[in-house]
Design a protein around this nucleic acid. Structure first.
Length: 759
DNA sequence: GAGCACTGC
C-alpha cells in the first residue's frame, strides 16, 4: 500500500482511514490509483459511478444518480478526457464554453478530481463576477457532488463565508473576494488551482487578477490557472497568457485552448432596412408587431434606464389593450413587466410570472413582455423568451480623468453584447432577434467588444489595491488592457495627497491600512483619522451610509409627502450629518418595526439594512487595525469634529462660492457647479465639501457639507500649498485666511490687489 | 428643482 500514490499525498493523520478502507480491495476506495494531476477521464467516470462518495465515504444518494444522468448530457461532459489530458500537461489553460455547455459547474469538478486538493490541504477556487452566481452555482455543485453546501463545496462572498476551514476544497467566490485575499497572501498559497470564470466580462477585479496570476504563475509552478470565457475573447487571453521562455530564445506560444460547444437553439436575426431615429418608439412598434403577427412566445426588450422602461411599459400596455379590445379573437392579452436593478426584489420576481391565459377558451394565448436594462443581458436569465428586441444601446460608465468625473452615457453596444442579447431568445427553443439598426451599421459601426471596466473607471481604488499587492511599478504592470496614463496619474496623485503613497509612489503605513477597508480611498482615510477628532463612531456611520445606494425614496405620486419627511430628518449644517441622523433614527427604531419606520419616512429599508451590514463589517476592520471607535458628548463639538474629519478625506472635493447667485467653482479644477436640488443646506456657505460630482443635465455637486477654509489649510497643507495654487478668486480668499492664521496682514507675500468683490 | 446601466470589496 505504501506505493499507493494517493496515500502518499495524504497527511499522515488521514492515511490510516484510507488504508483500512482500501486494504481489502480497491473496490472500496473510489479514488484508488488516482495520481494527482495525472488523472484520466476513465478513472473519473468510474469514481462517479462508484457506490461510495470519495469525499464523504458515504454511499451516493438516489438524487446524486439522477443528477449524474443530466450531467452526462452536458456538452462539456463528453470532453472530459480531452480536458483532463490538457489539464495534466499545462499550467495555464484558456477555455471557451458557450452558454449551456456546463462549464461553470463541471470544469471545477473535473479539476477537483484531477487536483485532489483535499490531499494537499489546498483548495480549488472558481471566481464569479456576481454574488448570486457564486452562491447558486456552489449550491448546484454541492448537490451534484452529493455533499452539504459549506462543507466540501462552499462559497465565499462579502458578508458571507460559506466554507469550512480544513473541509472545503472547492470554493466558488466573487472575483473581488479573491482579490481581497491576494492582498493578505500575495502567493495565494491556499489554492492549488484558480479558475477565473466569465473572464470575458472583464470586470476590474478579473482584470487585476489576471495580471496578478500571470506573474504569480512564474513563481508558483505548482499553481494551475484556467481562464474561462465566451468565444470572441479567447485569442486575446491565449496570447496574454502565452508561455515564453525568453532565455531559451523560444517564440512565445499561445496558451492552449480548450473549446466546448454550447447547447442553445438557433436564433434568427433581423435588421431594419433604415436606421431608426427614435429607438424607444421603434421598440414599442416592434413589440406590437410581434404580438400581432408572430407565434406565441415571450418578448424581451432591452432599453437603457428606469425612466425609459417605465414609459415604454405604459405605452405598450395602452396599445396592447386597444388591440385586444378591437379584436379579441385574433390577438391575445399582453402583460408588460419592467426590470431594472433598483426595483424591489418582489417586483423583480414578476419577470418569472407566466404569460396571461387566453381571454376566452379557443382565443389566442397571452404574451409576456419584459422591458429590461442590461441586467437581463448577464445577471438574470428568463426562461421562455422567444423574441428579443434590441435597439442597440445601453448606459455605460465613462471616466474623464481630466475633470476626474465618472458619468453614465447612453452609448451603442458592442457586437459581443448584441450577440449575447440575441442569445437570450434561444434558451428554450428556436427564437428571433429584431435588431433596430441596419446590418451595415452592425458590421461597421459597432465595436467588437465593450471596453473593459479598467478603461472606463476611476482607478484610485484599484491602484491602492495594486500597491497593497506589492506591485512596484503600477504604470508598467502587465495589464491585459493598459489604462490611460492620465487615469493612472490621477489615481497616484490622489493617493499621494491622501498620504497613502509617498512621493516615490510607495505604499505608506497609512496606505496599507486604508487598503484593508472595502472603501474608496477618501472614505478610508477619513475613517482612519476620525479618532483624532473623537468622532469615529459617527464617521463610521457616515462612511457606511455613503457606501450604499440612495436611501431616499420619492414615489412620483407622493413627492410632496416624501420631501416633507426628508425635511424632518435634515440637518442644516450638511447632508453628511443628515445621513448620520437618518441612520441613528433608523437604529433606534429597530426595536419597533424598522420596515415601518423606513416606509413612513420614505426611506429604503433595503438600503438601510445594507448600511447596517456595511457598518458592522467596517467596525470589525477598525477593531482589527486598532482604530478606536469613540464619540463626543457635546453635539456642537461633535458636529464640528465630524466636518473636520470629512475634510481630511475629501479636501480635494471642495467648492467655493462665486458671487451671490449660488454658483460654485471647484477648487483647483475651476469647474462651475451647482448644489444638487436634493441638497439640504439652508444657506449657501462660502466653502463646501462634496461627496460626488455628477454630470447630468448640468454639473452638480451632491451630498454637501459646509467646511471652514482654515481646516483646508490645516488638514491638507500640501494640497492647499498656495505657492502652487492656480491664480484666481479662490486663491486670493485662501491667502487672506492664511495670513490671518499667521497673525500678519499679508505674511510677506506680495500685497494683494485691493479689488472689491462685486455683487 | 433632480434621477438611478450593472457589479464588487
Amino acid at each position: 500500500m505504501a506505493d499507493n500514490p494517493y496515500l502518499a499525498h495524504l497527511p499522515p493523520s488521514q492515511r490510516g482511514a484510507v488504508h483500512s478502507s482500501s486494504s481489502s480491495s480497491s473496490e472500496k476506495e473510489p479514488l484508488f490509483g488516482f495520481l494527482p494531476r495525472k488523472v484520466k477521464g476513465e478513472q473519473v467516470r468510474k469514481a462517479l459511478d462508484h457506490q461510495l462518495n470519495p469525499f464523504t465515504k458515504q454511499p451516493h444518494s438516489a438524487q446524486y444518480r439522477k443528477i449524474l444522468e443530466t450531467r452526462r448530457a452536458l456538452p462539456v461532459f463528453s470532453q472530459m478526457d480531452d480536458f483532463l489530458e490538457l489539464f495534466s500537461k499545462n499550467q495555464i489553460i484558456v477555455m471557451v464554453g458557450e452558454t449551456g455547455s456546463g462549464k461553470t459547474t463541471q470544469i471545477p469538478q473535473f479539476v477537483t478530481y484531477s487536483d485532489l486538493p483535499h490531499t494537499k490541504g489546498k483548495l480549488v477556487a472558481c471566481t464569479q463576477p456576481r454574488r448570486v452566481a457564486a452562491m447558486s452555482v456552489a449550491q448546484r455543485v454541492a448537490d451534484e457532488m452529493d455533499v452539504q453546501l459549506g462543507k466540501q463545496v462552499g462559497y465565499s462572498i462579502r458578508f458571507e463565508d460559506m466554507t469550512e476551514s480544513g473541509t472545503t476544497f472547492l470554493k466558488y467566490m466573487t472575483d473581488g473576494m479573491l482579490l481581497r485575499e491576494a492582498m493578505s497572501d500575495t502567493e495565494l498559497s491556499r489554492y492549488s488551482t484558480i479558475i477565473l470564470d466569465e473572464a470575458h466580462e472583464r470586470t476590474l477585479a478579473t482584470d487585476i487578477l489576471m495580471g496578478l496570476l500571470k506573474t504569480l504563475a512564474k513563481r508558483r509552478k505548482d499553481l494551475k490557472i484556467i481562464v474561462m470565457s465566451a468565444t470572441l475573447d479567447a485569442v486575446k487571453f491565449q496570447s496574454y497568457f502565452s508561455l515564453h521562455d525568453s532565455a531559451a530564445g523560444e517564440e512565445p506560444s499561445p496558451a492552449p485552448l480548450f473549446k466546448v460547444p454550447g447547447r442553445t437553439h438557433p436564433v434568427e436575426v433581423f435588421y431594419t432596412q433604415e436606421p431608426e431615429p427614435d429607438y424607444v418608439e421603434a421598440a414599442i412598434r416592434t413589440v406590437l408587431m410581434i404580438h400581432r403577427a408572430e407565434d406565441p412566445g415571450d418578448i424581451l426588450v432591452f432599453l437603457t434606464g428606469e425612466e425609459e422602461i417605465e414609459d415604454a411599459c405604459r405605452k405598450i400596455k395602452i396599445e396592447a389593450d386597444d388591440l385586444l379590445n378591437a379584436d379579441p379573437s385574433s390577438v391575445g392579452p399582453l402583460i408588460c413587466v419592467p426590470l431594472y436593478s433598483s426595483l424591489p426584489p418582489q417586483q423583480q420576481q414578476r419577470i418569472f410570472d407566466a404569460a396571461p391565459k387566453p381571454s376566452q377558451a379557443g382565443y389566442p394565448p397571452g404574451r409576456k413582455v419584459v422591458v429590461s436594462t442590461n441586467i437581463a443581458e448577464t445577471s438574470l436569465t428568463i426562461d421562455g423568451i422567444v423574441y428579443v428586441v434590441d435597439p442597440g444601446f445601453s448606459k455605460q460608465k465613462v471616466y474623464n480623468p481630466r475633470i476626474r468625473v465618472e458619468s453614465l452615457l447612453v452609448s451603442p453596444i458592442s457586437k459581443a453584447s448584441a450577440q449575447q442579447r440575441a442569445g437570450r431568445a434561444g434558451r428554450t427553443r428556436p427564437g428571433k432577434c429584431f435588431r433596430l439598426y441596419t446590418e451595415k451599421d452592425f458590421i461597421s459601426e459597432l465595436e467588437e467588444q465593450t471596453h473593459p471596466e479598467i478603461l472606463r473607471s476611476n482607478l484610485a481604488n484599484a491602484v491602492l489595491e495594486l500597491a497593497k499587492l506589492g506591485i512596484k511599478d503600477l504604470v508598467r504592470f502587465d495589464y491585459l488592457d493598459a489604462p490611460a496614463p492620465e487615469t493612472l496619474m490621477r489615481a497616484l496623485e490622489l493617493l499621494n495627497y491622501l498620504a497613502a503613497l509617498n512621493d516615490e509612489g510607495e505604499l505608506t503605513a497609512l496606505g496599507g491600512v486604508m487598503a484593508e477597508f472595502p472603501l474608496d480611498p477618501q472614505l478610508a482615510k477619513m475613517l482612519i483619522v476620525s479618532p483624532e477628532f473623537k468622532v469615529s463612531n459617527e464617521i463610521l456611520t457616515i462612511t457606511a451610509m455613503l457606501s450604499i445606494p440612495n436611501v431616499w425614496l420619492r414615489p412620483p405620486n407622493q413627492r410632496a409627502a416624501a420631501d416633507q419627511a426628508k425635511a424632518m430628518l435634515t440637518v442644516p449644517e450638511g447632508d453628511h450629518l443628515t445621513l448620520l441622523n437618518v441612520f441613528n433614527n433608523y437604529s433606534q427604531s429597530t426595536y419597533k418595526d424598522e420596515r415601518n419606520w423606513a416606509w413612513n419616512n420614505f426611506l429604503s429599508a433595503r438600503a438601510l439594512a445594507q448600511a447596517e451590514n456595511v457598518r458592522a463589517q467596517l467596525l470589525r476592520t477598525m477593531e482589527k487595525y486598532d482604530v478606536d471607535v469613540i464619540s463626543l458628548e457635546d453635539e456642537r463639538k461633535r458636529n464640528i469634529g465630524i466636518r473636520q474629519a470629512l475634510t481630511c478625506g475629501f479636501f480635494m472635493q471642495v467648492a467655493h462660492k462665486e458671487g451671490e447667485k449660488g454658483s460654485y467653482l471647484t477648487v483647483k479644477d475651476n469647474q462651475v457647479v451647482a448644489l444638487h436640488p436634493s441638497c439640504g443646506l439652508d444657506t449657501q456657505p462660502e466653502w463646501v465639501l462634496f461627496n460626488e460630482f455628477v454630470l447630468t443635465k448640468r454639473p452638480y455637486i451632491r451630498t454637501v457639507t459646509e467646511v471652514k477654509p482654515e481646516w483646508l489649510l490645516e488638514y491638507a497643507p500640501v494640497y492647499f500649498d498656495l505657492a502652487s495654487f492656480p491664480d484666481g478668486e479662490t486663491k486670493r480668499v485662501l491667502q487672506r485666511v492664511a495670513n490671518r492664521r499667521r497673525g500678519t496682514s499679508n505674511g510677506g507675500e506680495e500685497p494683494r490687489p485691493k479689488k472689491k468683490l462685486k455683487k
